[in-house]
Design a binder for these strands. Structure first.
Lengths: 214, 214
DNA sequence: AGCGTTACGTTAACGCTGTTAACCCTCGCG
DNA sequence: CGCGAGGGTTAACAGCGTTAACGTAACGCT
C-alpha cells in the first residue's frame, strides 16, 4: 500500500463507445504512480488496475503490454519538452544563444522529469518498443530541432571548421548535454557544486566554447 | 534455457572451510550470465544457482541479496578500469595528453563492459548498495585519479582561469565523457558516425578545447 | 571413541510480478 | 427480438526475490 493507490473500489462499467475514457484514466493513474514511486519497475499493472478500480487483465484491453503503457506516459512528457524547446528558442535571433538555451532547457526537463528521462535514454534499446528505437527517439529529443539550430550556427560561420558536419556536431552536443542530465537524474545526491543553475549554465558555455570559433 | 546455464547437476558438498570456493563459483557464474544476457535483471538467482549446480537459497549463505551479488561482479570489472587508467597515463608527461588518454580509456571501458557500466551509472542511486552510493563510486570511477590529472593541468597553467576549481572541472569532464559513453552503451544501434574510434578522439579533443587555454 | 557444534546446503513456501485463456454481461444495431 | 461485439471479470500459469525450518556431514574437544 503505497498510499497512492486510493482503491477507488470497482468503478462502474463504461458504455459501449466509451472504452477510451478508461484508457485515459489508466494513463493518468500510471503517470501518478510513476511520479509517486519514481521508478517504472515499481509501478505494477496490478497497482494501476487497483488505482482506477478495475482488474489487471482489463489493462490489456487497452495496451498490448506494460512497456507500451509506460511509454505512452513517457511520450506525453516528451511532447512537453518539444513545446518547451520551441518556446525557449522562439525569440532568439542569435543561433549560438539558441543552442545554449536549448541545452539548458533539455537539462531542466531531465531534472523535472527524471523517470521519463530514465525510461527514454537510460534503458537498453532492446527493451524499448520498436517505434521508439531511434527514429521516433531522434524525433522526440527534438534532434531535428537542434540539428536546425546547429546548421544555423554553421551557416553563420560560428562553428569551428574542424568540428565536422551538422549531424556530427549535433550528436556531440547531445552527448554532452545528456551526460550532465543523466548524472543529475541518476545521482541526485552526488555532491554537486552549490548553485546548480549557475553550474549548468557554466557547463553549457564551456561545452560550446569547444565547438565554436572564438 | 538460455543455453548458458549448463546445469552442472548437483555439485558435491564442500568441505568445512571451503565455503569460499562456492562463493567464487557463484560470482563467476553470475559474471558469465551477465555477459551472456547483457542485463542484470535477466540473470536470476535461480539461474545462477542452477549454473553452479546448487539450490537458490544457497546463494543467500554467501550474499545478503541479489544486488550485493551483482555489485560484486561489477566491482571486479571496475577494478580493471582502475588498472587500465593507470596504464594509459603512465608514460605521459603532458597532463593534457594524460587527460585525453584517460577519457578515451574510460569510454572504451564502457563500450567493452556495457552491463557493469549500466549497473554502476545508469541506475537510480537508491537501488545501489550504500557502500557504492558515491564515496566508493567516486573512488571506483577513479575520480581521484582524474582529479589529480586535472590539478596537474591547472598547475601547468593549461586550464582556462574561468573554468572553476579542480573539482568542478573534473565533474564537467566526467559529465562529458559519461554522456558519450552512456549513449554508446544504451543505444548501440544508433547511427553513429562511421569511424568510431576517430569520432571518440575527436569528441574528446573538442571537449577539452572548451576547458583549456588556446 | 563419541559427543556437540557449526558450516553448508536443502525442501517448502510466501508474496509478488507480467501475462493469458476462458468466461460473462450488457449495450446497441439491424 | 436477436445477435454481435465491446468491456470487464475470474482463475490460473510461470517466473521472480526471499525466508523459515530443516537435514547432514565434517570438524574440535573431552
Amino acid at each position: 500500500m503505497t498510499s497512492v493507490d486510493a482503491g477507488a473500489g470497482r468503478r462502474p462499467r463504461a458504455r459501449k463507445g466509451e472504452g477510451r475514457q478508461l484508457r485515459d484514466e489508466i494513463v493518468a493513474a500510471t503517470e501518478r504512480l510513476l511520479l509517486a514511486t519514481g521508478s517504472s519497475e515499481a509501478v505494477s499493472i496490478r497497482a494501476v488496475a487497483n488505482a482506477v478500480g478495475v482488474t489487471p487483465p482489463s489493462i490489456y484491453r487497452h495496451f498490448p503490454d506494460k512497456t507500451a503503457l509506460i511509454f505512452e506516459v513517457v511520450d506525453r512528457h516528451f511532447a512537453e519538452l518539444e513545446a518547451r524547446l520551441d518556446a525557449a528558442i522562439a525569440g532568439l535571433d542569435d543561433p549560438v544563444a539558441a543552442l545554449a538555451a536549448a541545452g539548458r532547457t533539455y537539462i531542466e526537463f531531465g531534472i523535472e522529469n527524471p523517470e521519463p528521462y530514465r525510461v527514454m535514454f537510460l534503458t537498453r534499446s532492446d527493451e524499448t518498443p520498436d517505434e521508439y528505437k531511434y527514429e521516433r527517439l531522434a524525433e522526440l529529443t527534438c534532434f531535428g530541432t537542434v540539428l536546425g539550430i546547429v546548421q544555423d550556427c554553421i551557416d553563420a560561420g560560428r562553428v569551428r571548421p574542424d568540428a565536422g558536419d551538422a549531424v556530427t556536431v549535433t550528436i556531440g552536443v547531445w552527448a554532452r548535454v545528456h551526460g550532465l542530465t543523466s548524472l543529475l537524474v541518476t545521482k541526485p545526491d552526488f555532491p554537486w557544486p552549490g548553485e546548480r543553475d549557475q553550474f549548468i549554465a557554466h557547463y553549457m558555455d564551456s561545452c560550446l566554447r569547444g565547438l565554436l570559433v572564438d
